[in-house]
Write a protein that binds this DNA or RNA. Structure first.
Lengths: 193, 193
DNA sequence: TCCCTTCTCCCCAATATTGGGGATTTTTTC
DNA sequence: GAAAAAATCCCCAATATTGGGGAGAAGGGA
């Protein structure tokens, strides 16, 4: 009721079964879907995957009581544009819907904290040594990661073959490697490119 | 001024140099620090790391104009509790500060969208072209991804150098590439290893 | 001013990789 | 039981990469 009466939001419908929602989308073409996870027959995450497959541009905002990492993780991997904890204050839904509609994402504070924590645990140990590469070196390394040969890199960066050679020698020294494969792997896992 | 005049927020100070802020924290013991990235002498991310080391319970909210993945990534890995794009509307800062103080995290919509995208790209495997590699080929490719040379692969798999050569020739043909770097990049993005 | 870094380019020689032919022996599959 | 696939090995030659030097120009900072 609150959403339907909000300026700028048109409520196309509300459904207790996601399969009905999918059916209704054929006629209403909504911009944003507010999706509960716990529903009969199929979960909101499965429904979201179906929606994303049929209408890739539709934004889906998950709303649920679940705050555990597993649900958050699955929702994000399935392409959720936001994750809102069920909240008695209807204004947060309005804000979330508007932000998502504008191309952003909305995460409830506790969810955002968990996402950041998951993020950190993935990468924080992957960057123990901080390596400073110059602009050109990063560019050359970027080309290497694309699988380009010295000749192609020279062409792409508009520098001589021998200069590419020099840069790569410096990169290898800085990364403590001595072959392109090693450099690429290291670059990817250290997120240097 | 807006923050200082907001109920529930006490403004302990504002500094154009993070080193002064660190000094001031000794006396004021703030709950939340709102930190710019671009500052003279040291960056806000470095300052945040120093703060987190000295006062692990202090929440740090990054506020900046940078929206690129690199800055976002570094800030998160360094332990940021939030990331707010500079915004003329001071109320978003109040909201962010309150959410962070309460133990949550706050991300501006565009930042949240980028974080979710990074998250997805890490864990969702896209497998558009299906390539059949034999057991041995997968093993050899795995060695290549570790940065090993033909000689090392031969040693590791306990086969002759020439056999490694043969397998790699087959791998290149199956992946439609003709160099180790390309094969590695393709292997990683196709999640073949 | 001098030093340091970055970016640029060159030479040479050793090593590694790639691509083209083969060939043999196990497995697996039909 | 035979064909197909996988795995093993070899030769040769062309090409690419790597590592060792050195050197000049431009720009920033002490």
């Amino acid at each position: 009721m609150f959403l339907a009466s909000t300026d700028g939001i048109w409520m196309a419908g509300a459904f207790s079964d996601a399969r009905n929602a999918l059916w209704a989308m054929k006629t209403h073409h909504p911009d944003v879907v507010l999706m509960d996870i716990q529903m009969p027959h199929i979960t909101g995450i499965e429904a979201m995957q179906d929606i994303k497959k049929l209408y890739p541009n539709v934004k889906v905002l998950i709303q649920t009581v679940y705050e555990d990492e597993d649900h958050i993780f699955k929702a994000i991997c399935a392409g959720a544009n936001g994750y809102v904890i069920k909240n008695p204050n209807p204004e947060v839904y309005v804000q979330a819907i508007q932000e998502v509609e504008a191309g952003g994402s909305h995460l409830s504070p506790n969810i955002a904290a968990k996402v950041l924590a998951m993020f950190q645990s993935q990468f924080v140990q992957a960057q123990p040594t901080f390596v400073e590469l110059t602009q050109r070196e990063k560019q050359v390394l970027g080309c290497m990661v694309k699988g380009m040969s010295y000749k192609m890199i020279a062409d792409s960066c508009d520098i001589k073959f021998s200069t590419v050679h020099s840069h790569i020698k410096n990169i290898y020294e800085k990364l403590h490697v001595n072959s392109a494969p090693e450099a690429i792997v290291k670059a990817l896992e250290m997120r240097l490119v």
